[in-house]
């Protein structure tokens, strides 16, 4: 490799254009418009010259859109089940169009879908289902919260209005269940220490207190109010889970 000061760089410099030629720039501009859904294949060809097959060119653009949607379709299986295909597809298009394709990490395209649903006045229980599926994705692939304090690894606490994990399990196994009955549920998601796979438990007050303490969120007065026995019971559970 040549360093910046190496004189041989100068000899190569004339071969290296600093920007695409006008013809190539026009192609990229037109492709950007097509990928954003602003130009069709005929307009693309009108600007850049003929392709070998206009219908195929349009199909390539559709394949790009399908590829971007795939991660959401595969990840939010229960959410799709809850919403139905049509409403899910509309939400998906809104989500992928929201940032105009600016997300560089493919896996991160799936993040923020619960917010998209919330903004579209989706029933709150469906947003909770999406939130659960997103939390699992965060622990599996991208967007996990950083470990804090004495707690080893990422941990996510969610408070839902019904048993979301149970509903999702049933939804993935078979027929579409009815809208769930209210049953306030708190879930603590984390990674299994050995496999790194997402695991969860339904924490009681002791586990939540121990977790907050591990995160450094309890002061001495709070710890005293909770009491050492409860804290120790919670810590024992977290230790068994590899969180402490």
């Amino acid at each position: 490799m040549l360093s910046d000061s190496d004189p041989r760089r100068d000899a190569r410099a004339p071969r290296a254009p600093r920007a695409p030629s006008p013809r190539l720039s026009a192609f990229f501009d037109a492709m950007r418009g097509a990928l954003r859904g602003e130009l069709d294949a005929a307009e693309l060809e009108a600007r850049c010259g003929p392709s070998s097959d206009r219908a195929r060119l349009a199909r390539v653009v559709r394949m790009v859109h399908a590829g971007r949607a795939r991660i959401l379709r595969e990840l939010y299986v229960a959410t799709r089940h809850a919403l139905g295909e049509q409403r899910f597809d509309a939400a998906l298009r809104a989500h992928l169009g929201r940032e105009r394709g600016a997300e560089a990490d493919y896996a991160a395209l799936a993040l923020g879908f619960p917010e998209t649903l919330r903004a579209r006045e989706t029933p709150a229980w469906v947003v909770e289902v999406a939130d659960w599926e997103e939390a699992l994705h965060r622990l599996r692939v991208v967007g996990a919260p950083a470990p804090r304090g004495a707690v080893k690894g990422p941990a996510i606490v969610r408070r839902y209005t019904f048993d979301v994990p149970g509903w999702v399990r049933d939804a993935r196994q078979g027929e579409r269940p009815l809208e769930p009955a209210p049953a306030p549920t708190t879930v603590l998601l984390h990674r299994a220490p050995a496999s790194g796979r997402p695991r969860w438990l339904f924490p009681g007050a002791a586990e939540l207190a121990a977790l907050a303490d591990g995160w450094g969120e309890l002061d001495a007065a709070a710890r005293e109010a909770i009491g050492p026995a409860i804290l120790e019971a919670g810590r024992a559970t977290l230790r068994r889970r590899g969180l402490l």
């Binding site: 254009p17 030629s21 850049c48 390539v60 105009r100």
Partner: peptide, 27 residues
């Protein structure tokens, strides 16, 4: 190419096959 004007296609798109693209890609 995958990205164009800040749009991430998350796909591998073919360049047009002409001399300008040769020079650009090689550089």
């Amino acid at each position: 190419f995958s990205n164009v004007g800040g749009f991430h296609s998350h796909d591998l798109l073919a360049l047009p096959f002409h001399e300008d693209a040769v020079r650009w890609a090689a550089a």
